[in-house]
Simulated assay, not measured.
Amino acid sequence: MAAAMNSLYLLRGPICIRAFNFIKSINQTAQIQHNAFIRRPLQFRRVLSSIRATSDEELAASAAAANADSGAPTIFDKIISKEIPCSIVYEDESVLAFRDISPQAPVHVLIIPKQRDGLTQLGKAEKRHEVILGQLLHAAKIVAEKEGISDGFRIVINSGASACQSVYHLHLHVLGGRQMKWPPG
């Protein structure tokens, strides 16, 4: 344990503290040997990279939340208007589905309404949004069929900063192509 802790001093900032606390909690709860991470350097690097990724996602979500209701165009508005290119999987008059640029599964497609209409997050949905919400879910089924994952897929909707929503234009993530784990979060 001491050797692993000494190697952490080479790191800087909150990642160092999070890694230290993670290793400390693992050691206390799982009773692993003091040099487990030294003998498993790949596992240790994965822990550090997941801490860094989690931190980045949380920071992006916090920054996005500050401008959530500003009405400014989002990256998805720019994709809809074709200002930003994307790999379209499905499109109809109401929704657009395209591949995520940072996929978290072999199949990772985002589905968005073409008109935001105040629907920045699921937690702000109103009665008037019922039709588009249904269209988004139906589009998810069509995407799953087109991508060959209709036998098993996951739909994720992040709503708000605490859920790490980083774009305030309601969107669904369709994930599949591998065995999903539970619990997801």
Rank of each mutant, 00 (worst) to 15 (best):
N6F: 10
T29K: 14
R128D: 12
D92W: 01
E130N: 15
L96I: 00
I75P: 07
E130C: 10
E83G: 04
V167E: 03
E91D: 00
A36T: 12
A2Q: 03
K146T: 09
I111Y: 06
S150H: 15
P113D: 08
P14F: 05
G148H: 12
F37S: 12
F153P: 12
R45D: 07
N27W: 13
R116L: 05
S62P: 00
S166E: 10
H34L: 12
S49N: 11
I155S: 08
A4H: 06
K141G: 06
F44I: 07
I80C: 03
E91N: 11
P85N: 11
Y9K: 14
A3W: 03
H171N: 02
I132H: 04
S7W: 08
G118V: 15
R40E: 03
A68E: 13
S62V: 04
I80V: 14
I80H: 07
L42P: 04
S70G: 14
I32Q: 02
V174F: 01
Q135S: 11
Q43R: 10
D117E: 15
R178E: 13
V95L: 05
D92E: 07
S166L: 06
K146D: 01
E57A: 12
M5E: 07
I17E: 05
A163Y: 02
E93P: 10
V95I: 04
G118Q: 00
P85Q: 05
Q135K: 15
K78R: 15
R46V: 09
D92K: 02
V131Q: 06
A65H: 05
L110I: 13
G160F: 03
Q179P: 11
L42W: 09
R128N: 08
S159D: 06
A140E: 05
I80S: 13
Q33F: 08
L119H: 09
S87I: 15
V131K: 01
R128Q: 12
G177F: 15
G118A: 12
